[in-house]
Simulated scan of single mutants.
Amino acid sequence: MMLWLLLLQVWASCLWLGHSEVVNPFASCPQYFYENTPPNNALLPQNPAWICQRYNNSYYYATLYDINRRIPVYSAYIYQPGPGTRRDEWMVEPQLIRNNLPKEMETEKTLSKNYNITSQQIGQNQAVNADYKNLTGLNRGHLNPNSHHNSNSSKYATFTLTNIVPQNSNLNGGAWNDYEQNTMANESKGCISNTTYVIVGVVPGNTSIANGRVNVPSHIWSSACCRMTSNKTKAWAAIVENKAKNITLLTLGKLEDQLTNLYGKGKVSLFHSACPRT
C-alpha cells in the first residue's frame, strides 16, 4: 500500500511539472512579445508576478514584477509613438493585493475608498506613492514610457508603480530620455508600422529606498525587434549603469551576453530566435 501511495505521488508530481512547463504566464497578453515569445526564465526573480497591464477595460503591455524587491524586472510593449496627454495620478496593481480585487490598475485612493483597503495592505507586495517621496538624486523612471504610445488610455496605463523603478534623475532626464525619444525613432526607421516589439528592463542593485522596501537597479537596459519593409528582421539594444551619462548601444546578442553575466542565472534569451543576435 505504501509503495502504491509513493508511486501515486510521483505520478502526480510528474503531471504537475508537465503542466507548469506548458503554461504561458502571460496568457492574456502574449501579443506584446515578438511571435508571442516572452524572455526565458533566466530573468525570473525569487517571487515573480506576471502582469498583463490592464486599464480602461483593455490590455496595453506586459510586466514581469519582482514582488520582493518591489520593482519590475521588465516591461514589454509595442512601439507606437504619438500625441496625447500625461496622467497626473499614479496607479497600483490591485491583483498584487488579493486576487478577488479588480483586474485593472487603480489609484491607492480609489482602492482605499471602494474596498476599505489600508495603505499597508496595498504596499505589502508592491511599491506605493509614499516610497517615492523625498528622493535625492533619484526619481520615478518609466520602463515603458508614455511617449511610446499614441492614445490617452495607452499613455495613462504606463503611470502605474509596477512600471516604475528608482532611476538616477540626471540619467532619466538626459541620456535615457534621448534614447527613448531619438535613438528609438532612428533605429525603427524601415520597420513596418506596429511591429516594433520592445522589452525594457533592469538589473537589481545593492541599494534601496524607502527603508529597504524598493530596490534601486544597478543597470537599465532596452531591447527591440521589428519586421522591416524589406522582409527582414531587425534588432537592437542598449544598456547603461543607473548613474552613468553615456548609454552603450549594442546588438541584441551582446546585451543578452551581458545580462547573462549580470543576472548569473543562466543564458538569457529576450526574444524569439527569429530576431537577429548580431
Results as ranks from 00 to 15, higher is better:
Ser75Ala: 12
Tyr77Pro: 01
Gln80Tyr: 00
Gln80Trp: 00
Gln80Glu: 09
Gln80Cys: 00
Gly82Phe: 04
Asp88Cys: 02
Glu89Ser: 14
Glu89Trp: 13
Trp90Glu: 00
Met91Phe: 13
Val92Asp: 01
Glu93Thr: 07
Glu93Ile: 05
Pro94Val: 02
Pro94Gly: 04
Gln95Thr: 15
Gln95Ala: 13
Leu96Ala: 01
Arg98Trp: 13
Arg98His: 14
Asn99Lys: 08
Asn99Ser: 11
Asn99Val: 09
Asn99Trp: 02
Asn100Met: 06
Asn100Trp: 14
Pro102Ala: 04
Lys103Asp: 08
Glu104Ala: 11
Glu104Cys: 03
Met105Gln: 15
Met105Pro: 09
Glu106Leu: 15
Thr107Trp: 06
Glu108Gly: 14
Glu108Tyr: 08
Lys109Gly: 05
Lys109Asp: 15
Lys109Cys: 10
Lys109Phe: 15
Leu111Phe: 08
Ser112Asn: 15
Asn114Ala: 15
Tyr115Lys: 15
Asn116Phe: 08
Asn116His: 14
Asn116Trp: 02
Ile117Ala: 06
Thr118Lys: 04
Ser119Met: 11
Gln121His: 09
Asn125Val: 12
Gln126Gly: 12
Asn129Arg: 11
Asn134Cys: 08
Leu135His: 09
Leu135Val: 13
Thr136Arg: 12
Thr136Gln: 15
Gly137Trp: 05
Leu138Arg: 03
Asn139Tyr: 13
Asn139Thr: 14
Gly141Arg: 03
Gly141Tyr: 07
Gly141Gln: 06
His142Gln: 10
Asn146Cys: 14
His148Thr: 06
His149Trp: 13
Asn150His: 10
Asn150Tyr: 06
Asn150Lys: 07
Asn152Val: 13
Lys155Thr: 10
Tyr156Lys: 01
Tyr156Asn: 05
Ala157Tyr: 03
Thr162Trp: 01
Ile164Asn: 01
Ile164Gln: 02
Pro166His: 07
Pro166Ala: 07
Gly173Pro: 00
Gly174Ile: 06
Ala175Leu: 02
Asn177Leu: 03
Asn177Arg: 03
Asp178Pro: 00
Tyr179Cys: 03
Glu180Phe: 03
Gln181Ala: 03
Met184Phe: 10
Met184His: 04
Met184Asp: 03
Asn186Thr: 10
Asn186Gly: 12
Asn186Cys: 02
Cys191Gln: 05
Ile192Glu: 14
Ile192Lys: 15
Ser193Thr: 12
Ser193Met: 05
Ser193Val: 08
Thr196Phe: 00
Val198Gly: 13
Ile199Phe: 13
Ile199Met: 08
Gly201Asn: 06
Val202Ser: 09
Val203Thr: 09
Val203Lys: 01
Pro204Thr: 09
